[in-house]
């Protein structure tokens, strides 16, 4: 089920503040974050995040197409299942 329109998209406030501070100062250092549930809004375009996947931080550079998705969608939490000998 979708989220009620009345509430608007869920955006992590602390993260939003950080992004705004960065766009003001013009730096493009990746922002480390655990806020996987945070919706990507147009303000985030061109900023880089390090999104936690439970183990590591995955680098996500936001492009225009990503708006409306959540940050977590770009940081895979599962290890692919490999069978047999996949070494070498």
């Amino acid at each position: 089920m979708g989220r009620s329109l009345k509430k608007g998209p869920y955006v992590d406030l602390k993260l939003l503040k950080k992004v705004q501070k960065q766009t003001e100062s013009g730096s493009s250092e990746p922002i480390k974050t655990w806020a996987r549930a945070c919706t990507i809004i147009p303000d985030f375009i061109n900023s880089t995040f390090l999104v936690h996947n439970g183990k590591d931080f995955k680098k996500v550079t936001v492009t225009e197409n990503m708006v409306g998705h959540k940050l977590g969608e770009f940081s895979v939490t599962r290890k692919p299942a490999l069978h047999g000998s996949h070494k070498k």
């Binding site: 197409n65 990503m66 998705h69 977590g72 969608e73 770009f74 895979v76």
Partner: peptide, 12 residues
Amino acid sequence: GRLKDIACYRGL
């Protein structure tokens, strides 16, 4: 194609 392009979970 868009989903594949942005490499989100659904695209993968």
